[in-house]
Write a protein that binds this DNA or RNA. Sequence first.
RNA 1: GGAGAGGUGGCUGAGCUGGUCGAAGGCGCUCGACUCGAAAUCGAGUAGGCUGUGAAAGGCCUCGUGGGUUCGAAUCCCACCCUCUCCGCCA
Length: 423
Amino acid sequence: MLDIRRVRSNPQEVLKALERRHADLKLDAFLALDEQRRRLLVEVETLKNQRNTVSEQVGKMKKAGQDAEPLMLQMRDVNQGIKEKDEIIRGLDEKIQAILYNIPNIPHTSVPEGKDEQDNLEVRRWGERPQFDFPAKPHWEIGEGLDILDFERGGKVTGARFTFYKGLGARLERALINFMMDTHAHAGYTEVFPPFIVNKYSMIGTGQLPKFADDMFKLDGLDYYLIPTAEVPVTNMHRAEVLDVQELPKAYCAYSACFRAEAGAAGRDTRGLIRQHQFNKVELVKLAHPEKSYEELEKLTNDAERILQALGLPYRVVCLCAGDIGFSSAKTYDLEVWLPSFNTYREISSCSNFEDFQARRADIKFRPAPKAKAEFVHTLNGSGLAIGRTVSAILENYQQADGSVIVPEVLRPYMRVDVITKR
RNA sequence: GGAGAGGUGGCUGAGCUGGUCGAAGGCGCUCGACUCGAAAUCGAGUAGGCUGUGAAAGGCCUCGUGGGUUCGAAUCCCACCCUCUCCGCCA
């Protein structure tokens, strides 16, 4: 959420900054409603002031044994006016909130211009792409060949986009979670195991609601949602809190299952592990001092990259252009891993600085100095990494002619085998 | 799920027979005095949001949340949420 005062006082500046997103936005309705609201507010507050003063007077008169009946009668009328105006104001408030909640964040000045993913800027590449002297198979074929992935039965038991991992596949999934968590915890992130279900306030806090309700699974009859990412519970952990400046930056790593309805993704990535309704992910979350948040974004991105490096997976870092960054983000780096069967790099991590956009929604502040006024923190997060896509990348990049898959060095202590072969 | 108790400012804890209560006292914190310095002691200050303004002053709202009663509610009524204790059930 943007600062309402900023939108009010500099609508042109805000509009101009948002134009970079290539999202068609207008603020006329907002400005009109806002002005109307403030005018009514002055009116109703004058009436309330009158009520308060007169009520006090009534109390005094009664104590003195005087007749206060006329005043009380008069106040009854005043109350009617208050009630009516309050009603209108409440309606305006709702409309204004709705508009404000649906305005995306302003891209940072360092974010490149551009309309869609075509215009994203490659920042760097790492690693050697593997050369195969045999036709490289897609990960689902490798997985089914080794009997470690079972898409058929996932479909039977639940539905499309659900998968069973079996044997060394299941162990690989678990090994990756543990390896990533261990690595990040060692790098200074505090380990968190969050709830996988959150209430709507948390979803609003990080920006999933109200705009993206269709993308989520909601529990029937409850205001509870399955989390689409650990970002939601972990960031909201500090909702409505004022943190001590010394606590910043707060850095968390959290494993969670993630649930996404994938509305509008029908027909895309229908095979394999790339796009599932349920997947695992290790997430990094930071709450940072506003002056340090961009520094922290670079560090967080590097921390995620280190996982790919340790696993020996070729990847590139892309800075998303203004037209492609997410709704809540001010700047985003995507990490894209090389997938031989796709002959392309595919997103495996997304690292963003949300500045105070989420903090304002979730009311997360810090006190810069002992007596100073509390300010909003900057929130950041990034995948470190998406487990399912990491499995895909390992299977494809480490596949051998006989259909087996070499286990990356760093995972061997967790896997207790060097090669995944068909049993 | 059943029975009971409770949710007040950074913390603790009064108020809850409705009327200068945004809220006593204590602790903590900040500033000042005292001191060579510190402790102790003394004095002053110490919630947030909205609105308003050039900036102020001022005004409105907030005692878990949302309604209601009333001229007036932290105090009365209703609903909901959360916490604690006991019982039941359960991985």
